[in-house]
Simulated scan of single mutants.
Amino acid sequence: MADGGFNTAQSGNSAEFQRRASDPWMQPELFRGVLARRFFAFLIDLLVLSIPVILGMIFIAIFGVITLGLGWALFWLVSPASLIWAIVYYGVTLGGRHSATIGMRAMGLEMRTWHGEPSYFVLAAMHAILFWISVSMFTPLILLISLFNNRRRMLHDMLLGTVIINNSDLATVAEPHGSY
């Protein structure tokens, strides 16, 4: 190692920085099919998120019948509990060891920071919150922004400095292409 074992991405070596920043021109395989995979991963995650919410609503409905209608007052908890559940789900899964939700893992995707590091809980939770805010404020048409950049990043990805990549191709990309 020419750098004595130090991390050259932080010391200013631009070739190492570009390789770690997931350059779509040098590593196009990291971005192949990401948008389609992201869509299906989102659907899988919606299913995973909705199952506990539906089970909770069924429990409240049955509890309301048993308590002659008094238990139905608990329905007001469904919205805040769903919001907390979604933030915790995204924070734990995206901020976890795999940097991917269950849907993203099924589709072979993972989230990285701009510099290539794995995600962490706060970044992952903010990623989910900014996604829902941007889609709510700007309509789902805001997602079309990903069609006009080479990293296939959406608005919330750009604001947070994250990128979604294929993790199935990471083994082939780990070694730099050519000699530097």
Rank of each mutant, 00 (worst) to 15 (best):
V34T: 15
R37I: 03
P52K: 05
H115P: 00
M126Q: 13
F40S: 10
V135Q: 03
I133R: 01
G116K: 06
Y120V: 14
V34D: 06
A81I: 08
L109E: 11
V65M: 05
S134K: 02
L49S: 09
G95R: 13
D45I: 05
Y120C: 12
V88A: 13
P118I: 12
V78C: 00
E29N: 09
F39I: 10
T101Q: 13
L94G: 13
I51P: 04
M137A: 11
D23H: 08
E16R: 13
R19H: 09
R19D: 05
G103Q: 10
L68N: 14
D23C: 04
Q18P: 00
F42I: 00
I54Y: 03
M137S: 02
A61L: 08
F39C: 13
R19A: 10
T67G: 01
W114T: 11
F75S: 09
Y120L: 12
V34I: 07
V65K: 06
Y90G: 05
L83S: 09
S22H: 10
I102T: 11
W114V: 07
H127F: 14
I66F: 06
L74N: 09
G64R: 03
Y90M: 10
L55W: 00
E117D: 15
I133L: 08
I51M: 08
W25N: 13
G91K: 14
E29L: 07
S50F: 07
I129V: 14
L109G: 07
D45C: 09
T101C: 13
Y90R: 10
R105G: 14
I60Q: 06
P80K: 01
W132I: 04
I44C: 07
I66N: 01
L141P: 04
A73R: 06
I87C: 05
T139M: 02
F31N: 03
L68M: 12
A36S: 15
G116V: 05
P140K: 07
F121V: 14
P140N: 11
G91Q: 13
L77M: 14
L43N: 06
G69K: 06
F40N: 03
S50Y: 03
L30N: 01
I44H: 07
Y120H: 15
F42A: 15
V48W: 03
P24A: 08
Y120P: 00
R112I: 03
L47I: 10
M107P: 13
G103C: 12
G108P: 15
W76K: 09
R32L: 01
A15Q: 15
S82Y: 00
G116L: 05
T67I: 08
M137L: 15
W76M: 08
G116C: 06
R105D: 09
F138N: 03
F31Y: 11
D45A: 11
M107R: 10
F42V: 02
